[in-house]
């Protein structure tokens, strides 16, 4: 075989591999709105220079650091404000799993046999084992709440934090959900009244700029998945979140997962994930999963996309 035959074969094989990888949606950062600058289409033109992004109120977005302002020091014991992923609006979507444990066939959390069995029963829309829409059994396909910690691990978008002397309240843009974290010194209930979609959370300041939140009493399997790629969680799940205020403009979120039923050891799902502060008058755009909209979407789009044609 001549040398150029080999070169042509190599190009064809490399292209085929590229297509296959794309088809499996493996690329972290590609799916779920995370792509940037890609998909130029046939024209290769994407004119955004003259576009204005507005907030939910219709007002142009302001940059708190406009004019070359330098961030000030971190305020003391204060997380309040509206935050968004610092590396772009798509950075918190995490469709292929939490940023520090992407589902790419390489990173794999330390499953117990029970955890692996449940994971295998989940048919997810993302991650390296993704399936078409009509084959997925993700609870959120019916607009069920994401629950926690999936609210951190999927569609982490604009996030407003409110503080009062007894509570830190987190308002999530996605599906307009909220969590209350008690800071009045209380411990968890001795006997949990019930498992909850968003659990029971208590928080303490480890230092003047680091707020540590522990959460238990989570619903878990089968109603709540850990992430978008079908990793499971049980009712034994414990979550530790660390919110570290870096300066006046930045906060970093670290999330540690512990679940002795499904994982052999604790693991880090998000490691110093950066969030930046929006201007104080920013109004968060409403973003809800409405079951009737989901039904229309499945009929008009999801079913035909999966090859299902209903008369």
């Amino acid at each position: 075989m001549k040398r150029w035959h080999l070169i042509v074969m190599a190009i064809v094989v490399a292209s085929a591999v590229g297509l296959a990888q794309g088809g499996r949606g493996q690329r972290q950062g590609g799916a779920g709105g995370q792509a940037r600058g890609g998909g130029g289409g046939g024209r290769g033109v994407q004119s955004t220079a003259d576009l204005t992004v507005v907030d939910g109120w219709g007002n142009p977005i302001k940059n708190p650091l406009a004019g070359g302002k330098v961030p000030g020091p971190a305020p003391v014991r204060d997380l309040s404000g509206t935050w968004e992923p610092a590396n772009g609006p798509g950075a918190g979507i995490q469709a292929n799993g939490p940023v520090s444990m992407p589902s790419d066939g390489v990173h794999e959390p330390p499953f117990t046999p029970a955890g692996k069995a449940v994971y295998d029963s989940h048919k997810a829309l993302f991650g390296y084992r993704n399936v078409p829409p009509s084959l997925s059994n993700d609870p959120r396909n019916h607009c069920d709440p994401l629950g926690f910690p999936r609210a951190d691990f999927y569609q982490l978008r604009h996030t407003e934090i409110l503080q009062n002397p007894k509570q830190v309240v987190i308002l999530y843009q996605y599906d307009k959900r909220y969590r209350v974290i008690w800071t009045d010194g209380r411990d968890f209930p001795k006997e949990l009244p019930d498992d909850r979609w968003y659990g029971y959370s208590v928080g303490k300041w480890a230092d003047d700029t680091t707020f540590v939140v522990n959460t238990i009493g989570l619903l878990g399997e089968p109603r709540v998945w850990l992430d978008e790629t079908g990793r499971p969680m049980s009712d034994q799940m414990k979550i530790e979140e660390r919110f570290h205020r870096v300066n006046s403009d930045r906060m970093e979120i670290t999330v540690m997962v512990e679940d002795p039923k499904y994982f052999t050891r604790p693991w880090v799902a998000m490691d110093k994930f950066p969030m930046k502060l929006q201007s104080a008058d920013y109004d968060i755009i409403e973003m809800l999963c409405a079951p009737s909209d989901m039904e229309s979407y499945s009929k008009d789009f999801g079913d035909p996309a999966s090859g299902i044609v209903k008369k």
Binding site: G22, G25, R27, V131, P132
Partner: peptide, 24 residues
């Protein structure tokens, strides 16, 4: 437009599996 193009997944709240990746 494209057959042999390395995929550039864009967005899909509902997965990538249904799409003919890279085809335009």
């Amino acid at each position: 437009l494209a057959g042999v193009v390395v995929s550039t997944p864009v967005f899909a709240h509902h997965g990538n599996a249904a799409f003919d990746a890279g085809k335009r």
